[in-house]
């Protein structure tokens, strides 16, 4: 099962001649300077934008069909929670929405290969796992920024999505919160094994989380290089002390710098 994304130039040429295939179950980060179209790429996969040219496929179907089957879990930059609902109701609301999705999901080819239908997960359990056990009945306004973003991640995981699409979800958080959320994201991902597309502008975040780091460059938005991160999992804090971790960081920084200079020159 592969996924192929191909795009053509648009008038603003947000993305030009981008070709990317992601294997199921992989954690893929998109990194690059602002304006390189990494968010656009993400929005195309999530069905929020249409490509002017080219083709996007999620498990062989268009993003629109994937959305209709609730195969895509979106975690935006802000937590995007509903302030009038408790944490529990926020993460269970998706179950009440688009109830016909389960049947549509079964009909999509390749479904059998991915195992049995994901039963409605016990959201309480998932919240407890994410360290939100105390917060289940609280309102979003009563939580810290990090906790809110965790709720947003649990909401997306609760869909048991085939693709988890995350658009700089930790960029608004301080460094300590960010690292603990990375830990929790990896723990949840390890358990539910879904494909993740993760946009970030932090090199160390990309290396720590990803199987694959896709380096992008702006004007026009394009992929410069795809780097496989061959580091053992689980990737705990001891990773930051390791030489190979920093080698990957240096490699990605170097590619980013080159992309930047080739653009300026």
């Amino acid at each position: 099962m592969g996924r192929a994304y191909g795009f053509g130039p648009s008038t603003t040429v947000a993305l030009d001649d981008v070709d990317l295939t992601v294997q199921p179950g992989r954690f893929v980060s998109l990194i690059g300077p602002s304006g390189c179209g990494k968010s656009t790429l993400l929005r195309l996969v999530a069905g929020l934008e249409q490509p002017d040219r080219g083709d996007v496929r999620v498990h062989g179907v268009t993003p629109a069909k994937a959305c209709a089957a609730k195969m895509i879990g979106l975690v935006p930059q802000s937590p995007a929670l509903l302030p009038w609902m408790s944490v529990l109701r926020n993460v269970t609301l998706p179950q009440k929405i688009n109830r016909g999705a389960a049947k549509r999901r079964e009909r999509i080819a390749g479904f059998a290969e991915r195992g049995t239908a994901p039963d409605a997960p016990d959201m309480r359990e998932l919240l407890v796992k994410a360290g939100l056990g105390e917060a289940i009945h609280k309102l979003p306004a009563q939580l810290s920024g990090g906790m809110r973003q965790r709720v947003a991640i649990v909401r997306a995981f609760g869909l048991r999505p085939d693709v988890l699409v995350m658009d700089e979800p930790f960029s608004a958080l301080d460094e300590f919160t960010r690292e603990s959320l990375q830990d929790q994201l990896l723990a949840l991902w390890d358990e539910l094994k879904t494909t993740v597309l993760f946009v970030t502008h932090s090199v160390s975040e990309a290396v720590r989380l990803s199987d694959t780091v896709v380096v992008m460059a702006p004007k026009p938005g394009r992929i410069v290089e795809t780097i496989e991160v061959d580091l053992p999992r689980p990737r705990g804090e001891q990773l930051f002390g390791e030489r190979r971790f920093h080698e990957y960081e240096d490699l990605i920084r170097d590619r980013l710098r080159r992309a930047w200079h080739s653009d300026v020159a």
Binding site: A46, G47, L48, A64, C67, A68, A69, K70, I72, G73, L74, P76, Q77, S78, A80, L81, L82, W84, L93, P94, K96, I97, N98, A101, A152, R155, A156, L159, V165
Partner: peptide, 29 residues
């Protein structure tokens, strides 16, 4: 309703009625 909230629920293919009932009307209170 904030754009990112709408995007989250659009990515689940929420219908207009669902968006209205679950997001827009409470948001308008």
């Amino acid at each position: 309703v904030p754009q990112q909230v709408l995007q989250v629920y659009r990515s689940m293919d929420a219908s207009r009625i669902e968006l209205l009932w679950h997001l827009r009307i409470p948001n308008a209170l």
